[in-house]
């Protein structure tokens, strides 16, 4: 385990900064997944491009 020893390192790894970074990454990840897994797009263009990914990963496709 990586244990922070100095107060400064502890402060940088404070709960609030970890929370902010984590929630930002989570939101970004969910937006990407929504595009890959759920958006159909004009003329189904996104559906067609991500078709085999959706079928493989059990995203509802049809």
């Amino acid at each position: 385990m990586n244990i922070s020893t100095t107060p400064a390192a502890k402060a940088e790894n404070s709960i609030s900064s970890r929370l902010t970074a984590s929630l930002t990454a989570l939101a970004l990840g969910l937006i990407i997944l929504f595009a890959v897994g759920f958006v159909q797009g004009a003329n189904d263009v996104i559906h067609d491009a991500a078709h085999d990914t959706r079928h493989t990963m059990v995203f509802p496709c049809h």
Binding site: L23, A25, G29
Partner: peptide
Amino acid sequence: LLSLLSNILAGIGFSLVVASAITLSSQKG
């Protein structure tokens, strides 16, 4: 090519979610 692209995007999306959970719970490795 399209499958590769959307698989990589799905990989990055899921990795962001997992990285977020790991960071919140401090369980790296």
